[in-house]
Amino acid sequence: MRLRKSSAFIAFTVINVTGLALLFAHGALERQRQAPVLSEKKIMVERFGLTDLCLFTDARYTRNPAVADRSTPFQDNPLSLDYFPSGSILPPPPHLRAHELDR
């Protein structure tokens, strides 16, 4: 008997949903497996007194955005604009708007 097209579509969708469910299950297992790695990183942050993740290493205000001040991207010279690629995708930290010294 020939397989109906709708049956083939349902089977394909079920396979995809099952695949996705398996991947999400992998995610849950991976979270458990990586829990010690996360604690290790947290301990490292405590030990070094770190304030930032090492995501961008090209500019200091993108390496440590949490402790950068508002003028750092522009302080190479007057009218100097931010030219680092990472500076264009990193928004200014929200707390910079709150402090008197940064106004």
Partner: peptide, 11 residues
């Protein structure tokens, strides 16, 4: 989530 968990250890 990684940042939130890890940076809990920040000063």
């Amino acid at each position: 989530r990684d940042a939130c968990l890890v940076l809990e250890g920040a000063p």
